[in-house]
Design a protein around this nucleic acid. Structure first.
Length: 827
RNA sequence: GCUCUUGUAGCUCAGUCGGUAGAGCGCUUCCUUGGUAAGGACGAGGUCACCGGUUCAAAUCCGGUCAAGAGCUCCA
């Protein structure tokens, strides 16, 4: 007989709704706990990955509910973006409709899984009530000087008429239409995230983040310390600032490497239209897509400009080359090349026959220029470096930097790998940037009272090759809010990562019509106590959200430094070792599992199969195992209901119970202790569930409970009675039903966390293991209060022990209390 | 190339302070049963990837090797 999961799950989902279990309010005497799982893109029917991720969040939410917190667990949808637009094109519909349809499907399935989401706080980023405040934030950011427009080269597809992200360029061609991608100099909107680079490196404001994620962010931001030095252009006033992390090699500079985009290069090109070689080279390099351009495999190339600059330290004349391996947007966009001590410069110098100069000698084996096969990048002894000769190169770094500063030739500084965040997208389905372009006033922000700039509905998605917004004249053409002249709206929309950078704040005050959220309400809930999501967001979403939070803090809207105090990065659901995906055809439909075995079975399977931060390997047998586990629990309690109800009214006198029941008593208390530790502190729900399984085995081992005496019955009833509580975070429906069957009027979480008695964890008979020279030689069952002397003599008397000690002298006898005796013996 | 993670039963994974190698699934045998993709009992199955070190004692600590996976990789 299968337990009636369908009725049970429907019943308790209804009861929770009536009791408003998931609806959080700020007026509570309990301490708050904000559990948040990263919101999904509304793709329609849930897949196993959703079920798995949100099972973790719900387990945490329910644990905290039991623990007595005022828990908020909201849910929403990251509904703007290309996938939604493309989905609508494919289905010949409008993204607004397809998105809302999908949301309805997902909400229904979330409810079928029994997740305790506060639907009164639901957000969807494509709704005007939400994106209104994204525009408002954009404006505040603009006012703070954190938004700017910059012309820069972008991957551009002529056919689609849009900018492509780096990952949308495949072999130099557009991923959608296959058109060759060109680089186009475009005006794009940027957020000045680099202003916060330093602070984003500091994680002292978080409580518990995976080391891995923090390392990834630190690497991504990539702070490097170095020195900025100014090289003077020969026969000119112009200065070329360079950034280097190796000031100790400055005396070895033999050429200057500039990218074609460098302003000086651009000026020379304009001044010298006849120089074909230069023009052709620059044109070719600039039109290469960024991926292959910045790949280490790309062959280094360059052209000599015929110009020189002067090394400020030794007055050397330095050739200036235009190259394809220097990036305009890192450091100062110029590299002082030291071929003898940098592999990239070495490769380039060899190819173009540029001289090299050794300025750091290998103390092990002297370098000889003509014999060098690669650059010498290790530390060494300074040579050919004027007053620094003979110094250790590591010490020379500081000495030279100091000298440069004293001479006013430059300064010590740090550079970051992190770039400003380009947020412009030439697509329809995104949040419109609230800007109007006026021929006389220039860039004018849309006044707050005119927000939100609504996305027009009457576009024909997919019918135009360019941004569909360009084809809506009544939307596009407006009066300038300042001067009233005819003006045009900005047609770029914002990167969807902007929408997801502050949604956690909107949940705290979801219906505010005056502002994104009321600081008082936000500060009640924030920071998010537990955030849950995939590690793929380590350097994107999680970094952007931290940036936004710090910005909002600087505005005085929030009083915390970090948005997410604790972070859990969950694993994926795999099948046959690979991620479940439509293209692989290895999808499992969670709805089928829910219909056939129930939501509780699915949740238990997903949580039991591995720790939350590791991947789950899908297994039909594993699902069956979870289902059987719940059925065994059901039978245990349901078939002994009358006995159990009576037993729960009794108190046990442990002097009066059999050894078997004593073991059960131990199991109850040990299991609760382990469960509390696993679920609450270690967040290892798999082992917490395994502990319940083991405990269940002990309960089931009690045959014929009706024949137990009253003291034993009390122990048995306690052992069975804790199971609903232990099950609640993972399988809440069956837990509530069993709790209810046992006669409780309340809901499980109102019973609080289960407790244990330390005194029941002490056993009065202890099994000692005896080792002789590290080998197991015997076992000894003794009372717990035995004296050490007696224990030792008993151990030595054991037949096997005595035999293995024959002819040997005991050198050492170590007693590990409560566990074992180790005897070291030799001749 | 660099960094990190993992390697334990057929499978998925536990193993806390170094102290008797464990759960679930699967498997063997048996019992129950004309509601069975069911229930119950007993059991088998491990060189803890490999080599070395520390220790009375190593899956656990240290060093090395191998294998698998992930991230970064012209960042001056």
């Amino acid at each position: 007989m299968e337990y009636p999961f369908t009725e049970i799950e429907r019943k308790w989902q209804e009861n929770w709704k009536i009791a408003r279990l998931a609806n959080a309010s700020e007026s509570s005497a309990k301490p708050k706990y904000y559990v948040l799982s990263m919101f999904p893109y509304p793709s329609g029917a849930l897949h196993c990955g959703h079920a798995s991720n949100y099972s973790i969040g719900d387990a945490i939410a329910r644990l905290k509910l039991m623990e007595g917190y005022n828990v908020m667990q909201p849910m929403g949808y990251d509904s703007f973006g290309m996938p939604a637009e493309n989905f609508a094109i494919k289905n010949n519909s409008h993204p607004r409709f397809t998105t809302e349809d999908n949301i309805a499907i997902m909400r229904r399935q979330f409810n079928r899984l029994g997740f305790g989401f506060d639907w009164e706080r639901e957000q969807s980023t494509c709704r005007p009530e939400y994106y209104h405040w994204g525009q408002y934030l954009f404006k505040r950011m603009y006012e703070k000087g954190l938004v700017y427009r910059k012309k820069s080269f972008q991957n551009w597809c002529e056919e689609c008429n849009t900018v492509l992200a780096n990952e949308q360029v495949e072999d130099g061609r557009c991923w959608r239409c296959g058109t060759e991608v060109i680089q186009k100099d475009l005006d794009q909107w940027y957020f000045r995230i680099t202003d916060y680079a330093e602070e984003l490196l500091d994680f002292s404001g978080v409580i518990d983040w995976p080391e891995r994620v923090m390392t990834m962010q630190k690497n991504w931001i990539g702070k490097s310390y170095g020195t900025e030095i100014h090289f003077l252009l020969e026969h000119s006033e112009a200065v070329i600032p360079v950034f280097t992390t190796r000031p100790d090699t400055i005396f070895g500079v033999t050429f200057m490497a500039l990218p074609p985009e460098h302003p000086l290069v651009q000026k020379w090109l304009a001044d010298d239209p006849e120089n074909k070689e230069l023009h052709e080279f620059c044109h070719r390099v600039m039109n290469e897509d960024k991926i292959s351009r910045s790949s280490a495999e790309t062959t280094k190339e360059g052209v000599f400009t015929g110009r020189y600059c002067i090394n400020p330290l030794n007055g050397d004349k330095v050739q200036i080359w235009i190259t394809n391996y220097v990036l305009m947007d890192y450091g100062t966009g110029a590299v002082m090349a030291v071929p003898a001590h940098d592999q990239r410069d070495f490769d380039f110098a060899v190819k173009y026959n540029i001289p090299m100069k050794i300025v750091i000698q290998n103390p092990e084996q002297s370098l000889v220029l003509s014999q060098m096969k690669q650059a010498y990048v290790e530390p060494g002894i300074m040579v050919a470096s004027a007053q620094f000769d003979g110094m250790d190169s590591l010490a020379a770094k500081d000495a030279i930097s100091l000298w440069i500063e004293e001479q006013g030739l430059g300064k010590r500084t740090a550079t970051y790998r992190l770039r400003d965040w380009g947020i412009s997208r030439q697509r329809y389905w995104g949040n419109p940037i609230p800007v109007i372009h006026c021929p006389s006033c220039g860039i004018v922000l849309v006044p707050d009272e005119d927000l939100p700039v609504l996305l027009p509905d009457n576009v024909q998605v997919g019918k135009t090759t360019s941004n569909p917004l360009l084809s809506v004249p009544e939307w596009l053409n407006v009066e300038c809010p300042k001067c009233g002249q005819a003006a045009r709206r900005e047609t770029d929309t914002m990167d969807t990562f902007v929408d997801s950078s502050w949604y956690y704040g909107r949940y705290t005050d979801p219906h505010n019509e005056e502002r994104p959220f009321d600081p008082a309400r936000a500060n009640y809930w924030l920071p998010v106590d537990q955030y849950i999501g995939g590690i793929e967001h380590a350097c994107m979403h999680l970094l952007y959200a931290r940036f936004f939070h710090k910005f909002m803090r600087d505005l005085g809207w929030v009083n915390s430094d970090e948005p997410f105090a604790r972070l859990l990065t969950q694993g994926m659901v795999l099948k046959d070792g690979a991620k479940m995906s439509k293209s692989k055809g290895n999808m499992v439909d969670p709805q089928y599992i829910i219909d056939r075995f129930g939501a509780d079975t699915l949740r238990v399977f997903l949580l039991f199969s591995s720790p939350p931060d590791k991947d789950v390997e899908w297994s039909d047998d594993g699902v069956m195992g979870s289902f059987r586990f719940l059925n065994r629990i059901w039978r245990l309690i349901e078939s002994n209901l009358d006995v159990l109800k009576r037993g729960m009214t009794l108190n046990a006198d442990i002097a009066n119970i059999s050894p078997a029941l004593k073991e059960l008593l131990y199991s109850s208390h040990f299991t609760v202790k382990k469960w509390l530790d696993d679920s609450l502190h270690r967040k290892q729900y798999n082992t917490a569930i395994a502990a319940v399984m083991e405990h269940l085995n002990h309960c089931v081992a009690v045959k014929d409970p009706a024949s137990l005496n009253d003291d034993e019955l009390a122990v048995f009833a306690e052992a069975c009675g804790i199971i609903p509580q232990l099950l609640y975070p993972f399988a809440p429906h069956i837990a509530e039903e069993l709790w209810h069957l046992l006669g409780f009027e309340s809901m499980v979480h109102e019973g609080g966390l289960p407790g244990y008695e330390e005194s029941y964890l002490v056993r009065d008979i202890i099994t000692y293991v005896i080792q002789v020279n590290g080998k197991l030689r015997g076992k000894l069952e003794v009372p717990a209060d035995i004296s050490e002397a007696e224990l030792k003599s008993k151990a030595l008397e054991l037949e096997n022990v005595a035999k293995s000690l024959e002819g040997l002298t005991v050198r050492k006898l170590i007693v590990i209390p409560g566990k074992m005796i180790s005897i070291a013996a030799s001749r």
